[in-house]
Nucleic acid binder design. Structure first.
Lengths: 136, 136
DNA sequence: AATAATTGTAATAATATTTGTTACAATTAA
DNA sequence: TTAATTGTAACAAATATTATTACAATTATT
C-alpha cells in the first residue's frame, strides 16, 4: 500500500457518513480531499462494486452510503482498496536449485497471510461510524 | 510496502543465517534470489546500517550476520526496510475549510500508528532463526 | 422539449517509485 | 601483482500512481 487509496476511500466514506440522507457529488467530495473529481469517481466505482455506497446519475445525482455507517467496518474498506500485502511483494524467479530460493515464497506466503489477517482482524472491530464520529 | 524489499532482505538474511561463519558474496546471494548483485549490495548496505550484518571488502570479502539469528527479530528487518505505513499514504493538501478535511490526517495518523504497531508487535516475537529454521 | 448538472469511463499525460544495469575506485587475500 | 570483492554513483527501464481531458449517458427542472 504505497498509495493514498485507503485514505481517499475513508475520507469519502466519512463525508457520506456525516450526511447519510444526502447525495454528495464527486465535485464536492473532491473539494474536501483536494484531488481531482475523476479520482473520486474512480474510487467511488470501487466502493460501489464493494456494495458500500450507491450512486445515481443525472442532475441531483451523487453518492451515499448503502448501509448504516455502524455496519461498515474498516476491514470492508481496506479489502475494497487493497492491492498488495502488508509486507509487500515477493521476488518472482527465485532459484529452484537453492533450498532457500526454492521454498522461500511458500514461507513468505504463510507470513504474509498472518500479517494481513492481523490487520483485517483489528480493523474489523472498528466501524465507519466510530471513525466518522471523531470529527468536529 | 508495494515493493520486494522485505522479501529480499529476509532472503539475504536467511542465507546468512544458514552459514553464520561464512562470508557470502553478493553474487552468490543474487544467484539465489535471481536479482542483480548490485540490488543485493544496496540492500546489504541498509542491513549494515541497521547493524544486522557486517560486510568486508576485497578478495574473500562478503557479508555475514552481525549477531546470532536468534537475536534478530523480523521487526528489526521490517523496520530496516520499511518506507511506508501499512495503510499507505495520506492525501497531502486536504481542505482546511472542511471539518473532515481539516482533521482527517490527524485521525489517520492515530489509525496508521495503531496498525503499524500491530505488525511490529507481532513480528517482534519471531526471530530470523525461527524463519530460517523452516528450510530444507 | 430544452437545459443544466451529474455519473461513468476511456484515453492520455505527468509524476513518482521501483528495479535493473554499467562502470569503476577502493580494498584485500593470495 | 593479480584476482575477487564491496561500495556507490550515475543512469536507464519498467511499473505504479495520480492527474487531466473529453464526452456519452442519465436525470431533475423549467
Amino acid at each position: 500500500m504505497n498509495n493514498t487509496r485507503f485514505a481517499t476511500a475513508l475520507h469519502i466514506l466519512t463525508l457520506l457518513a456525516h450526511k447519510p440522507e444526502e447525495w454528495l457529488s464527486s465535485d464536492y467530495i473532491a473539494g474536501s480531499i483536494c484531488i481531482n473529481p475523476v479520482m473520486v469517481r474512480k474510487e467511488l466505482a470501487v466502493l460501489n462494486e464493494a456494495g458500500l455506497v450507491i450512486s445515481r446519475k443525472g442532475k441531483e445525482g451523487g453518492s451515499r452510503l448503502n448501509r448504516p455507517g455502524g455496519e461498515i467496518s474498516l476491514t470492508d474498506i481496506y479489502l475494497a482498496v487493497k492491492n498488495s500485502e502488508v509486507l509487500g511483494k515477493k521476488n518472482r524467479n527465485t532459484n529452484p536449485l537453492c533450498p532457500v530460493g526454492r521454498q522461500i515464497n511458500t514461507r513468505l506466503d504463510d507470513l504474509y497471510t498472518d500479517t494481513d489477517r492481523l490487520i483485517t482482524t483489528y480493523l474489523e472491530r472498528r466501524t465507519l461510524s466510530d471513525f466518522a464520529g471523531q470529527f468536529r
